[in-house]
Protein backbone atom coordinates (compact mmCIF):
# COMPACT_ATOMS: atom_id res chain seq x y z
CA UNK A 1 0.00 0.00 0.00
CA UNK A 2 2.81 2.32 -0.75
CA UNK A 3 1.73 5.55 -2.28
CA UNK A 4 4.38 7.31 -4.25
CA UNK A 5 5.25 10.95 -4.21
CA UNK A 6 5.74 13.18 -7.20
CA UNK A 7 8.58 15.52 -6.36
CA UNK A 8 7.37 18.29 -8.62
CA UNK A 9 9.96 21.01 -8.80
CA UNK A 10 12.47 19.23 -6.57
CA UNK A 11 12.90 16.90 -9.48
CA UNK A 12 14.27 19.60 -11.74
CA UNK A 13 16.53 21.10 -9.14
CA UNK A 14 19.81 22.21 -10.59
CA UNK A 15 19.16 20.59 -13.88
CA UNK A 16 19.73 23.47 -16.23
CA UNK A 17 23.14 24.15 -14.77
CA UNK A 18 24.04 20.52 -15.28
CA UNK A 19 23.10 20.50 -18.96
CA UNK A 20 25.76 19.13 -21.22
CA UNK A 21 26.68 20.39 -24.68
CA UNK A 22 24.25 18.10 -26.47
CA UNK A 23 21.38 19.30 -24.32
CA UNK A 24 22.18 22.97 -24.89
CA UNK A 25 22.44 22.31 -28.60
CA UNK A 26 18.96 20.81 -28.52
CA UNK A 27 17.52 23.70 -26.50
CA UNK A 28 19.02 26.29 -28.84
CA UNK A 29 18.04 24.38 -31.95
CA UNK A 30 14.47 24.13 -30.77
CA UNK A 31 14.33 27.80 -29.79
CA UNK A 32 15.81 29.00 -33.07
CA UNK A 33 13.46 26.64 -34.90
CA UNK A 34 10.42 28.24 -33.28
CA UNK A 35 11.72 31.71 -34.13
CA UNK A 36 12.32 30.74 -37.75
CA UNK A 37 8.85 29.23 -38.23
CA UNK A 38 7.32 32.30 -36.66
CA UNK A 39 9.37 34.49 -38.93
CA UNK A 40 8.44 32.46 -42.02
CA UNK A 41 4.76 33.21 -41.42
CA UNK A 42 5.27 36.95 -40.79
CA UNK A 43 7.70 37.17 -43.69
CA UNK A 44 5.12 35.85 -46.16
CA UNK A 45 2.43 38.05 -44.59
CA UNK A 46 4.53 41.20 -45.09
CA UNK A 47 5.69 40.23 -48.55
CA UNK A 48 2.15 39.53 -49.71
CA UNK A 49 1.50 43.28 -49.79
CA UNK A 50 3.01 42.77 -53.23
CA UNK A 51 -0.24 41.11 -54.30
CA UNK A 52 -2.21 44.31 -53.89
CA UNK A 53 0.64 46.33 -55.34
CA UNK A 54 0.73 44.26 -58.51
CA UNK A 55 -1.87 46.29 -60.44
CA UNK A 56 -0.55 49.78 -59.67
CA UNK A 57 1.71 50.16 -62.70
CA UNK A 58 2.37 53.86 -62.22
CA UNK A 59 3.04 53.58 -58.52
CA UNK A 60 5.47 50.74 -59.13
CA UNK A 61 7.38 52.81 -61.64
CA UNK A 62 7.50 55.71 -59.18
CA UNK A 63 8.48 53.28 -56.43
CA UNK A 64 5.66 54.37 -54.11
CA UNK A 65 3.45 51.30 -54.36
CA UNK A 66 2.16 49.58 -51.21
CA UNK A 67 4.85 46.92 -51.15
CA UNK A 68 7.81 49.25 -51.64
CA UNK A 69 6.54 51.76 -49.09
CA UNK A 70 5.79 49.15 -46.43
CA UNK A 71 9.19 47.49 -46.74
CA UNK A 72 11.07 50.79 -46.88
CA UNK A 73 9.17 52.07 -43.85
CA UNK A 74 9.99 48.92 -41.90
CA UNK A 75 13.63 48.99 -42.92
CA UNK A 76 14.02 52.57 -41.76
CA UNK A 77 13.25 51.55 -38.17
CA UNK A 78 16.26 50.79 -36.00
CA UNK A 79 14.32 48.11 -34.10
CA UNK A 80 13.63 46.22 -37.30
CA UNK A 81 17.29 46.35 -38.27
CA UNK A 82 18.37 45.04 -34.88
CA UNK A 83 15.74 42.31 -35.07
CA UNK A 84 17.17 41.39 -38.46
CA UNK A 85 20.60 40.92 -36.94
CA UNK A 86 18.94 38.69 -34.36
CA UNK A 87 17.26 36.78 -37.15
CA UNK A 88 20.60 36.31 -38.87
CA UNK A 89 22.09 34.95 -35.63
CA UNK A 90 19.17 32.57 -35.22
CA UNK A 91 19.32 31.39 -38.82
CA UNK A 92 23.08 30.94 -38.89
CA UNK A 93 23.04 28.92 -35.68
CA UNK A 94 20.17 26.78 -36.92
CA UNK A 95 22.05 26.15 -40.18
CA UNK A 96 25.36 25.29 -38.53
CA UNK A 97 23.86 23.18 -35.78
CA UNK A 98 21.63 21.61 -38.40
CA UNK A 99 24.74 20.51 -40.30
CA UNK A 100 26.05 19.09 -37.04
CA UNK A 101 22.81 17.18 -36.53
CA UNK A 102 22.93 15.83 -40.08
CA UNK A 103 26.39 14.48 -39.35
CA UNK A 104 25.14 12.96 -36.11
CA UNK A 105 22.30 11.34 -38.05
CA UNK A 106 24.79 9.87 -40.47
CA UNK A 107 26.78 8.55 -37.55
CA UNK A 108 29.80 10.72 -38.31
CA UNK A 109 31.87 12.18 -35.50
CA UNK A 110 29.60 11.32 -32.61
CA UNK A 111 32.53 11.47 -30.25
CA UNK A 112 33.17 15.11 -31.00
CA UNK A 113 29.54 16.24 -31.00
CA UNK A 114 30.25 18.61 -28.10
CA UNK A 115 33.15 20.22 -29.93
CA UNK A 116 31.09 20.69 -33.08
CA UNK A 117 28.41 22.39 -30.97
CA UNK A 118 30.93 24.85 -29.54
CA UNK A 119 32.31 25.38 -33.03
CA UNK A 120 28.87 26.26 -34.38
CA UNK A 121 28.36 28.72 -31.50
CA UNK A 122 31.68 30.45 -32.12
CA UNK A 123 31.17 30.53 -35.87
CA UNK A 124 27.67 31.97 -35.43
CA UNK A 125 29.08 34.72 -33.23
CA UNK A 126 31.81 35.53 -35.72
CA UNK A 127 29.49 35.65 -38.72
CA UNK A 128 26.95 37.81 -36.91
CA UNK A 129 29.53 40.31 -35.68
CA UNK A 130 31.03 40.54 -39.16
CA UNK A 131 27.59 41.19 -40.65
CA UNK A 132 26.47 43.96 -38.30
CA UNK A 133 27.83 46.81 -40.51
CA UNK A 134 25.99 45.49 -43.55
CA UNK A 135 22.76 45.00 -41.65
CA UNK A 136 22.75 48.43 -40.00
CA UNK A 137 23.95 50.33 -43.09
CA UNK A 138 22.01 53.50 -43.77
CA UNK A 139 19.64 53.28 -40.82
CA UNK A 140 21.42 56.09 -38.97
CA UNK A 141 21.75 58.31 -41.99
Amino acid sequence: MSQSYDRGLVEDFGRWREFSAGMWAWVFHKFTGWVLVGYLFTHIAVLSTAISAAGQTQAIAAENDVYTTVITALESLLVVRILEVGLLAVAVFHILNGCRLLLVDLGIGLDSQDKSFYASLVLTGAIVVASVPTFLAGVFG
Binding site: E63, Y67, E75, E84, A137
Partner: peptide, 16 residues
Protein backbone atom coordinates in the same frame (compact mmCIF):
# COMPACT_ATOMS: atom_id res chain seq x y z
CA UNK B 1 18.95 39.72 -50.10
CA UNK B 2 21.16 41.24 -47.46
CA UNK B 3 24.66 41.33 -48.89
CA UNK B 4 24.29 41.44 -52.67
CA UNK B 5 21.06 43.46 -52.61
CA UNK B 6 20.42 45.50 -49.49
CA UNK B 7 17.16 45.03 -47.67
CA UNK B 8 16.56 48.76 -47.30
CA UNK B 9 16.85 49.34 -51.03
CA UNK B 10 14.12 46.85 -51.84
CA UNK B 11 11.45 47.81 -54.35
CA UNK B 12 8.69 46.08 -56.23
CA UNK B 13 10.62 46.52 -59.45
CA UNK B 14 13.75 44.83 -58.15
CA UNK B 15 11.81 41.93 -56.63
CA UNK B 16 9.84 41.60 -59.81
Amino acid sequence: LHFVNHADEVSFLASS
